[in-house]
């Protein structure tokens, strides 16, 4: 089963650097509920989802920086964002995603 948290633990055991992204808040129509996870390793491999495909690319990019720096960050995506045309939620919702390094 591709359960993101189980995969994160396996990756950690394999010695890979891992980041965990979690949806902590949603407004309006959001494709994935609060609590959903995306796990990312330092090579950009990922499992799970925080938006059903809309913003995963951006989260993966942020995750590599979080892995390097070790400091968690909060990222917000949505139509209100000026980058909405590049990276946004086509459904019109907004989400906040917390990205942190494992360990």
């Amino acid at each position: 089963m591709n359960d993101p948290l189980t995969i994160a633990e396996e990756w950690m055991k394999e010695g890979r650097d891992v980041a965990i992204a979690t949806v902590v808040e949603t407004w309006g129509s959001a494709p994935r509920p609060v609590g959903s996870h995306l796990v990312i390793d330092s090579d950009g491999n990922f499992e799970g989802s925080v938006s059903g495909g809309c913003v995963e690319g951006a989260v993966v990019a942020e995750a590599s920086e979080v892995i390097a720096e070790g400091k968690p960050r909060m990222i917000e995506f949505g139509v209100a964002d000026e980058t909405a045309w590049q990276v946004g939620l086509s459904c019109g919702g907004r989400i906040r995603v917390y990205v942190e390094r494992l360990g």
């Binding site: 948290l5 633990e9 950690m12 942190e100």
Partner: peptide, 11 residues
Amino acid sequence: MDPYSLKKLNE
């Protein structure tokens, strides 16, 4: 996330 938290949660 603390690796210990992840292990405990998964358990």
